[in-house]
Nucleic acid binder design. Structure first.
Lengths: 200, 200
DNA sequence: GAATTCTTTGGACAGACTGTAAATCCAATA
DNA sequence: TATTGGATTTACAGTCTGTCCAAAGAATTC
């Protein structure tokens, strides 16, 4: 009748381990060259785990994709210190851009596919939107350090310039460009737009 | 043995008609608020046509999506005359931007979903890439009228600024903006980037 | 050691979807 | 009237998601 008190570290650690294995397998599959579609079955096989365990750990395919995106996205936003300690707006914008381009470059294929899948998956879509929104608030804060009332339209444009879509498109245009090159191109555009900002 | 010479206008017209009906139904479904997924069955039902007819007319679901995108995209590129007769680069870029924004605004939801599906559909992906490439060559030609050797990186950025992704993101940020407002915001950014173009 | 709890596994199943095939119907045409 | 292209109907194979359940394995508590 009265339930026993259970507090296990080994079991919890093991569960975390399989979670991690599944996420790793999913990431590897999505990063692979030709994945026509990502099935839960394929992920389970790649992680050497039963299909049921995937549902056990993440509830659904959407849950798995959301968790995967979160693990990738959590790494972003970490290195924004450079941008926020820059002495002027140009250097701040450049640091901001570089930071995100590094992040986009890291898991480019995976991110592109996740974003594609989000179009058909409302939960995932909401998650991505929330993350993009975080980038925008960070950008707004950044510009507030150098401008009293930054123009909303300008922020929107720079926000879009620092998006994954822009990085992916520019990087795809010229395969010889390194992520740093792409960041440089985007940062130049961002500062140009910023300089043309109308006075309020 | 010898096949009759059949040249029917009525039959061909009827076939065209069902094709059109199917495309219309698919577009309507994709434009609808909450389409969790677009199945061939749903399209057939909405077009009041058998599922087999869809395969008859388009071969596969990919074929249907490609045809749908083509009918939408063919309307673009029509109204570029304004841009190519503009007296200076700024007006040309503005006309160019407005033209595409009008197009993006027309079938915004459908385009967004088609682009999402393209991530999981190689044929569709190739088609979209080809269309985007056409926009880039048009843009290059346009800038060649006012600049001897336009900077490749600058073109890439303006190309991205006039993309559907940029339009969609900027329009989504502020629902009160009309398509013309969005075009204005983007055109301002494009001209700013163009002005900052490094001399060659 | 024995009971208890959590996790994983395997199999089976319903339901939705894509794509193919064969038989049939219908209207336009020769 | 016989023929033909297109549309319909029905059936089927195969894949995928998501759920249920019974059983096994392992760690933890008593």
């Amino acid at each position: 009748m009265s339930p026993r008190e259970y507090r296990s570290d080994k079991r919890q650690a093991a569960a975390e381990e399989t979670r991690r294995r599944i996420l790793d397998a999913a990431r590897a599959l999505l990063a692979d060259a030709a994945p026509p579609r990502l099935s839960v079955d394929a992920v389970a096989k790649a992680a050497d785990v039963s299909r049921q365990s995937v549902y056990n750990a993440f509830g659904s395919k959407s849950g798995l994709l959301e968790a995967l995106f979160d693990t990738l996205a959590d790494r972003a936003g970490m290195g924004l210190a450079d941008a926020f300690t820059a002495p002027d707006a140009d250097q701040a914008l450049t640091a901001f851009t570089q930071m995100f381009c590094r992040f986009w470059a890291n898991d480019r294929t995976v991110l592109r596919r996740l974003r594609g899948m989000a179009v058909l998956d409302q939960d995932l879509e909401r998650l991505l939107r929330r993350r993009d929104e975080m980038r925008r608030t960070a950008l707004t804060e950044l510009l507030l350090r150098f401008t009293d009332t930054p123009d909303a339209a300008t922020i929107d444009v720079i926000w879009q310039l620092t998006s994954f879509e822009t990085y992916d498109a520019i990087a795809a245009r010229d395969q010889t460009r390194t992520p740093e090159d792409v960041a440089h191109v985007i940062a130049a555009a961002a500062t140009a737009v910023h300089h043309s900002m109308p006075p309020t």
